[in-house]
Nucleic acid binder design. Sequence first.
DNA 1: TATGAATGAGTGTTCATTCAT
DNA 2: TATGAATGAACACTCATTCAT
Lengths: 224, 224, 224, 224
Amino acid sequence: MAASTPAVSRVAPRRGVALRETKFDRRLAKILVHAIEVFYEKGYEGASMRHLSRSSGMSLAGMYYYFESKEKLLYLIQKHTFATIVERLRERLKDVSDPEQRIRVFILNHLEYFLANQKAMKVLSHEDDVLKNSYGAEIRAIKREYYRICVELMDALKADRGIEFNSRIAVLSLYGMMNWIYTWYNPRVDADAKELALQMGDIFLRGVGSGRYGKHAAKKRSVN
Amino acid sequence: MAASTPAVSRVAPRRGVALRETKFDRRLAKILVHAIEVFYEKGYEGASMRHLSRSSGMSLAGMYYYFESKEKLLYLIQKHTFATIVERLRERLKDVSDPEQRIRVFILNHLEYFLANQKAMKVLSHEDDVLKNSYGAEIRAIKREYYRICVELMDALKADRGIEFNSRIAVLSLYGMMNWIYTWYNPRVDADAKELALQMGDIFLRGVGSGRYGKHAAKKRSVN
Amino acid sequence: MAASTPAVSRVAPRRGVALRETKFDRRLAKILVHAIEVFYEKGYEGASMRHLSRSSGMSLAGMYYYFESKEKLLYLIQKHTFATIVERLRERLKDVSDPEQRIRVFILNHLEYFLANQKAMKVLSHEDDVLKNSYGAEIRAIKREYYRICVELMDALKADRGIEFNSRIAVLSLYGMMNWIYTWYNPRVDADAKELALQMGDIFLRGVGSGRYGKHAAKKRSVN
Amino acid sequence: MAASTPAVSRVAPRRGVALRETKFDRRLAKILVHAIEVFYEKGYEGASMRHLSRSSGMSLAGMYYYFESKEKLLYLIQKHTFATIVERLRERLKDVSDPEQRIRVFILNHLEYFLANQKAMKVLSHEDDVLKNSYGAEIRAIKREYYRICVELMDALKADRGIEFNSRIAVLSLYGMMNWIYTWYNPRVDADAKELALQMGDIFLRGVGSGRYGKHAAKKRSVN
DNA sequence: TATGAATGAGTGTTCATTCAT
DNA sequence: TATGAATGAACACTCATTCAT
């Protein structure tokens, strides 16, 4: 899948050649793909530059021609992954106006990308807080943006249905549901992204669905 | 809180009498508390024995009198944390028979423990797959057990209500919702465990709540 | 010579035992002696911790038990060397009151120590500006102190003889004369410290010696 | 100043005509100027080819078109600097015959060049012993030559005045005085080359000036 | 019961240099 | 005439762990 091959912005100054993908870019992308694999397997801290170098078939020193540091490597992966998911979401959201459908689009987009790029997504989710300084700030900015979009989706739903719930908790719960996947998803036993999106969408949308508690409204809700 | 102080099983042969908590146990527990702090802050791979020794005030070599390895340290933390949460769940479940209430108990138990032991719970969740071999096997066994309990709770609910949904997805989604909180929970802005359990319980229970889709049943559920 | 064996203050916290020189101190001193040798031979930048470790017979990692960094190693050497030379100077100056004799004492003290500890003195002189931050500040403080002492000696001489010359240039010229010897001194062809001190003392003292230019006063001094 | 721009002998085979300064030479000279700056700032060992390339704006690989190695670069700098100072000295010495004046010319020449090319002169003085093999041998040859000239100047002075002193110590002391400048000279507080040459010339010439010890001859010279 | 002393293997990163183009 | 791409060796330093005491 093309989108999972990071077409990262160059690390070293280059003389342009605008549209054509350069050899440098291709090599860099290849390394990133291997790095995702290794980070996925061992975690960021657990993965050494030597592991990364071995896995990508490039010399240890050679890596540094493409990346100035291990941190930058993670940053590039996270940035590309996150930016892509947001970009695609925006694209898909354009065509849909119904508030509930928009949330379903959000869920489907997230899960489809997640399952198609499971490893990168684990690296994004799991190494959430390792990037510091400016790299970290940039990633956190995208994260905030993604969060904002989802909160707006929630607010629209609330307005549309005339219901009330805590958007923050709702959004964060939804994220949890979806992001946790990387800990359990097994393509041989679990449904595909579409079906999963349907099920999680049902749970979530029905869950926040109305101010009343439906037919079980009378039930005791709290546990002493 | 007593339960959050790990009364870990001994590591080295002991000459002590059975029931009395020995000095060894107390020191060991103290080290574990500090280790949780450091693992929480730096992650398992990022935390070095030197960090752990510094933080607990014990000499580097001294640590090895209490633990045979860094891995064992993580194992002890995860084992104790997980075992405690399961133990408490069983306790609480004894008094409740209504299927929905039992699930609410499950959620409350999880969240209460999670928030009261946030750091340990992050260490449990985040370092999910670092333990290999027998240590890992043991932790995975508890995990399976915890999972089984929750699946049974779901099955009981389905039987009771005469509804149908995928228990696996439901359980795992619920886990995701709950475990994800270590990435976002902020005691200054977010509600306490009880309230959170209520809200997540609502979302989840209402979400899986009925075979029908309530008043919005006619809505298009799938996204192209 | 005892004084050339650095009895450095400990690097790691120790429980005192005040007066007795500990095993730690002895090992540390031994390493310092080897380090001086290597720094002398290769320069600070050119000497690697591997060289130092090889030369002292201690494992690379072992070195870091005694010193927290290569910089600290240099600092310890420079501090001890410089502090000792100043200390000895003060001692010797106590017994002498005649201004000229005091300068001769200064020169002799410097040269004697220089030749007895030629390698350490080269490391002190040649690696003058590599230490930054607090280490460097401390060394520079001692240097300023040493300089001050010498300036005072000059001022006393001027007052005593009723002559005038630029103390700064005089002191710095004298330093140059003396410190430069590490570039050329050859014990097989050059005189010992006492004789050298006599000769340099003559050149210097006679050189600044009187306001008049002696019998050659009429000579043209400047070069177009 | 033309003379401070190293018109170095070419490194690579040239097809060019003899007398005209080629583009190659000019580029090479430009690199040398930048290299002096970097060696001055970081020292030879501390300066990397990357630093040098960055500072001169030429690609890392490009440097090797002009220089076959980092060592050669230092050699070129030292050779040119040293050769120029000797050449100029010879020039100036031609017009002067009085022994004392000749020494004053020597001092002035040295100091003027030193201060006008302070950075290059530090690189010459400070990296005195890093060049090995044939490069080093060549530099050492010039050094010996320069030393010989100065010794001859001293011998002429001794013959002229009928005095006796150790020429070796005298020359080397004079060198020390002068070369040490790079460690302390501050153009904002210190006099210019002419004045400095006067003062150092006075100290030195008066210092070696006569077999007798002038009016203080009776003074005790040695320090026990 | 605990630690000072020590280490081999590994960390991320930079080095001077090469070579095809 | 110059450089992009690449590398083996080295860099300072930290790792988890051991063992005599």
